[in-house]
Design a binder for these strands. Structure first.
Lengths: 232, 232
DNA sequence: TGTACATCAGTGAACGCGCGTTCACTGATGTAC
DNA sequence: TGTACATCAGTGAACGCGCGTTCACTGATGTAC
């Protein structure tokens, strides 16, 4: 028996999920710094000490939320890319689709977004489990660039000498098969994409940008250009 | 008498500054969410209720720190631009100088940076006093673009139709005298600059970018290109 | 210049609150024979 | 199939902590005459 579990195990899975759901709700209400085990327990009709059967500490619960958030935005990005690819879209359209999806996810889950791309939670240091899920979006973008490179190529000017060793290292570390100028451009574009989304989600565009959808689409196009994805 | 003040007034100025200094230290230790009036008072050897002679509430103290942070990074950016301009640097070099200064300030004051460009503090909403200081850096960048435009011009492709009304509005609102495609590109570049700096300050470049200075210089150059500041 | 009164910084006690975490316990579910 | 024991989810009380804010007070500094 591997799939059919006893009542105890099923209950455990359900309660764990309920705790995380309620914690996400609390996150959306008050932010990560104020996330409280007691409040979560209260809302679930449990006594606060009962949560310790599921998470050994508040930080472990936070970690679970962080991993879930990375997985959620990562899955959304991967699905968007898959849909575009299935529809026969060229790399540039796939890039734009992923950018739009990242933005849409962030606007739908602003507090989870803040949890993973905002200022770090003070006193909390992310454990190793978060590394792999954290890179799913960036990996999706790398996949698109790889496809583009293997297709009609990527048009980027050569790097300044000062950046060449670093770009070579990046390429070897996480972007094998891409030219080094593309690796460097991709990391910059990814940071810039998060900057654009953060400004919108964190309210820095108040009184500055009104038609944010149009603005973002254009900016995402510029980012595509910056990594060598020309319109076609 | 306007400049020479009584002992009471001078003491008030000094104590207010001491409170803010200590609060900044607390900020650097534990972050904005955990900033506590009692801890600040304790550290200053005062009783916590005494702080209420200087700040009517915790939020007002936070607001003062936010205004100071905006003014500090704004002044740094303005000074860097002034130095470059005085040295006869062309607009592109001025742009790069401001970008580097923003990065340097952020690395020197990571928690103050997080306060103004990180995730918003939950439950806190910024009052109107923060609006003017918040725009000093962006205004500096606008000034550079204006100088460039009035000099040899700016080379940017025309905007897609969907963005033209929004770009016209932006230009009228805060970037008079610039062509609309420049206004739109500037806002995007500013958000992207903050994205690059945030990734570095918030630790997202751990295990990804090692030679961060070289990487940033290159990325800042790309941003300059994105607003039409060609090398020269 | 000297005195009487007003202003105001700082004190100390108190209010009411919520937090994370531990621990001995009860009672239901699961397992071995 | 039935019983005895082990496992484990959830309880409730308690520990010790820090927080923001209020309030009546004291005593020093400033001001008006």
């Amino acid at each position: 028996m591997n799939t059919v579990r006893g009542a105890r195990e099923r209950a455990r899975i359900e309660v764990t999920a309920a705790i995380k759901d309620e914690a996400r709700r609390a996150l959306a209400a008050d932010g990560a710094a104020k996330l409280s085990l007691r409040a979560v327990a209260r809302e679930l009709g449990m006594v606060s000490s009962a949560l310790y059967r599921y998470f050994p500490s508040r930080d472990e619960l936070l970690t679970a939320l962080i991993v879930d958030a990375y997985d959620s935005i990562g899955a959304a990005a991967e699905e968007a890319d898959l849909r575009a690819r299935t529809a026969g879209s060229p790399p540039r359209a796939r890039w734009l689709a992923v950018c739009e999806t990242v933005r849409a996810w962030a606007l739908e889950h602003p507090h989870e977004y803040a949890l993973i791309y905002g200022s770090p939670v003070p006193g909390y240091s992310a454990p190793a489990d978060t590394i792999a899920p954290a890179s799913r979006v960036a990996d999706t973008l790398i996949g698109i660039l790889r496809a583009a490179y293997e297709g009609r190529g990527l048009a980027l000017p050569p790097l300044p000498a000062a950046l060449r060793p670093e770009a070579a290292r990046m390429t070897a570390d996480f972007a094998q098969g891409l030219p080094p100028e593309t690796s460097a451009a991709l990391v910059a574009a990814w940071a810039q994409l998060v900057g654009l989304v953060s400004f919108e989600v964190f309210g820095q565009f108040n009184r500055v940008v009104e038609d944010r959808t149009a603005f973002f689409s254009h900016a995402a196009g510029q980012l595509a250009h910056g990594v060598g994805l020309t319109s076609a």
